[in-house]
């Protein structure tokens, strides 16, 4: 399948040690997409918080997947437990009680958090790009 030019995908162990790598890669892509400095910092924090949350909700020893894409108008980042299918009908809206999810909501234009208790979760975040 042909991928859009800005698509990047990172697979990593569900381990806090690796969140730094995601942060660096995603901020590099946001820079390539010409986001201003302040928004790059916001995206960095939002994607890290999404990883923290997904790692916390993933079974031990699992992998997480981070997919980034842009259509020129929106920058979209999907963070999920690798074994969870984001189109699975059994996913239900997760609890947004924790501070990390509150931070994502405040910094991004849109966030969707779906979970399958015991199996993992999916967080999709979107940031609009200025014209």
């Amino acid at each position: 399948m042909e991928r859009p030019p800005h698509f990047i995908c990172i697979q990593l162990p569900a381990n806090p040690e690796y969140v730094l790598i995601v942060r660096l890669a995603v901020s590099g892509l946001a820079n390539r997409l010409d986001f201003p400095y302040e928004e790059i910092e916001d995206i960095k924090l939002a994607v890290s918080e999404a990883c923290n949350s997904i790692i916390a909700g993933s079974p031990p020893g699992s992998l997480i997947l981070v997919e980034c894409d842009s259509d020129g108008k929106t920058f979209e980042i999907l963070v999920k437990t690798q074994s969870v299918d984001e189109n699975d009908g059994a996913l239900v809206p997760g609890s947004e009680q924790d501070m990390g999810l509150h931070i994502i909501r405040a910094l991004m234009d849109d966030m969707e958090y779906l979970a399958k208790p015991g199996s993992g979760a999916v967080i999709r975040i979107r940031k609009n790009m200025s014209a």
Binding site: E49, N52, M99, G100
Partner: peptide, 9 residues
């Protein structure tokens, strides 16, 4: 240079 929710915690 950077702090997240776990740092705030």
């Amino acid at each position: 240079r950077y702090i997240d929710s776990t740092g705030l915690g």
